[in-house]
Design a protein around this nucleic acid. Structure first.
Lengths: 201, 201
DNA sequence: ATCAAGTGTTAGCACTGCTAACATCGGGAT
DNA sequence: ATCCCGATGTTAGCAGTGCTAACACTTGAT
C-alpha cells in the first residue's frame, strides 16, 4: 500500500482543530488563530472546520471551555493536598495567579468569552465561593474575623486574586516579567497580608 | 456657491479619525473598528487613514492614549476635592472602578495596548504609587499599619482595585450588571474593608 | 514660479470569515 | 445485498479586511 493516500474523511477533525487552536492560543495569543490556518494545519479544506463549529466564536468558546477546565484541574490539584480550609484557600489563590502567569492568553480568553465566563465562573466557581463563605462564617463565629458581610469579604478576596492575576496578564509594570515562582511568592504574600489584615490568621 | 463640493484635502483627518475611533471603541468595542469603516465615516478613501497612522495598531495605540488621559483626568477630578491622603486614595479607587464600569472597552484597550500600558501605567501611575507608599510609611510610623513591606501593601491595594475593575469589565457573575452607583459603593466597601483589615483606619 | 512635502485618490494583493452547491463515505433500514 | 440519507468532506466564490504602490492635487517655503 502506498501509505500517502489520506482518506476522504479526516477521522476526528473536531478534536484536532480544538487541540491545535488550544496550543496556538496558548503560545501566540487569540489573534494568531484563523479558521483557514487551522484547516491547513489539519490538512483539510478551508470550509471543513465549519462543519464542526458554526463560526469562529464557537470554536473560541470551545477552546475557552477547555482552558477553563484546565484551570479548574490545576486548582483541584493545588487544594487536594491541603488539610484545613485556610491553606486550601491560599493554595487556590496561588494556583490561580500562577495559571494566569503561565498561560496569559488562555486566561484572557476564558474571561473574554461571554458564554464560558458565564458558565465557568457562574457554576463551577460558585461552589468554591460557598466553601470560602463557609470558612468566613466559621472564622466569624470564632471571633477571628470582623462582622462584615461575608459575601463582601469573599468578593474582596476574589478581587485581590483576580487583580493580581490580571496585572500579570496585562503586564502591569510593577509585576512584569515575573517568573511563575515569583508570582507564587507574590500571591502568597498578598493573600497573607489580606488575611492578616482581615483577621484570618 | 454650490456648497456640496468638498475640498481635496479633508482638513484635520487625523483628529476626526481619532475621535470617531474613540467613540466607536467606547460604544461598540475594539473589534468594531476597521480602517475602511473609519475612512468611510470621514468621507475619505480607504487608503487615506494610512497617511496618518502607519497601521491599525498605531491608531489603536493613539486611542488608548486618549483613553488613558481621560482616565487620568477622572482620577484627578476625584482626588481634587479631597483633603487628607486617605480620602484621596479612596476616591481614586472609586473613580478607577467607576471608569472601568462605564467604559469597559476603553479600559480594556488601555491595558491591552502594550506601548500605552507601559507609558501610562509606568510613568503616570508611578507618582500615584509614590504618594500611596508615602502614606503607608506615615501610617507605619504612627503605628497604624503593620510593618510589612510598603511596596507590598501598595501592590496589594492596587491589585484589589484593578481586580474589582476587571471583574466588572469581564462581567464576572458576582458583579455583573452593576450600575456605576453600585460600583461606587462596592469599591468603597471593599477598600474600606481592606484598609480596616490592614489597619489604615 | 517652482519644487518638495504633505495629503488625498484609485487599483490591487493577500488574507479573512463564511456560504452554497456538489462529492464521498459509512451505517442503518429494508 | 442494496438503498439511501446524514455526516463530513470538497471547490468556488462573495464581501470584507489591512495594507501598499503609483499617481494626483494643494500648499507653503524658496
Amino acid at each position: 500500500m502506498a501509505g500517502g493516500d489520506k482518506p476522504y474523511h479526516h477521522g476526528n477533525l473536531r478534536e484536532t482543530l480544538l487541540e491545535t487552536a488550544f496550543r496556538l492560543v496558548d503560545s501566540d495569543g487569540v489573534d494568531a488563530i484563523s479558521m483557514r490556518a487551522l484547516a491547513r494545519e489539519a490538512g483539510v479544506s478551508s470550509a471543513a472546520p465549519f462543519r464542526h463549529f458554526a463560526d469562529k466564536q464557537v470554536l473560541l468558546d470551545a477552546v475557552a471551555e477547555e482552558a477553563a477546565a484546565e484551570l479548574e484541574r490545576k486548582l483541584d490539584e493545588a487544594t487536594a493536598e491541603c488539610s484545613d480550609a485556610l491553606t486550601q484557600f491560599r493554595a487556590m489563590t496561588v494556583a490561580y495567579v500562577r495559571f494566569a502567569a503561565e498561560h496569559p492568553a488562555l486566561f484572557d480568553l476564558i474571561h473574554s468569552t461571554e458564554s464560558v465566563s458565564r458558565r465557568f465562573l457562574g457554576e463551577v466557581k460558585d461552589e468554591r465561593r460557598l466553601k470560602l463563605i463557609a470558612l468566613i462564617y466559621e472564622g466569624q463565629n470564632a471571633g477571628l474575623i470582623p462582622e462584615a458581610d461575608p459575601e463582601l469579604i469573599a468578593l474582596t478576596s476574589e478581587a485581590l486574586t483576580h487583580g493580581l492575576a490580571r496585572m500579570i496578564v496585562d503586564r502591569h509594570p510593577r509585576v512584569r516579567n515575573l517568573s511563575s515562582e515569583d508570582a507564587r511568592k507574590l500571591a502568597l504574600a498578598a493573600t497573607h497580608l489580606l488575611q492578616t489584615g482581615i483577621g484570618l490568621s
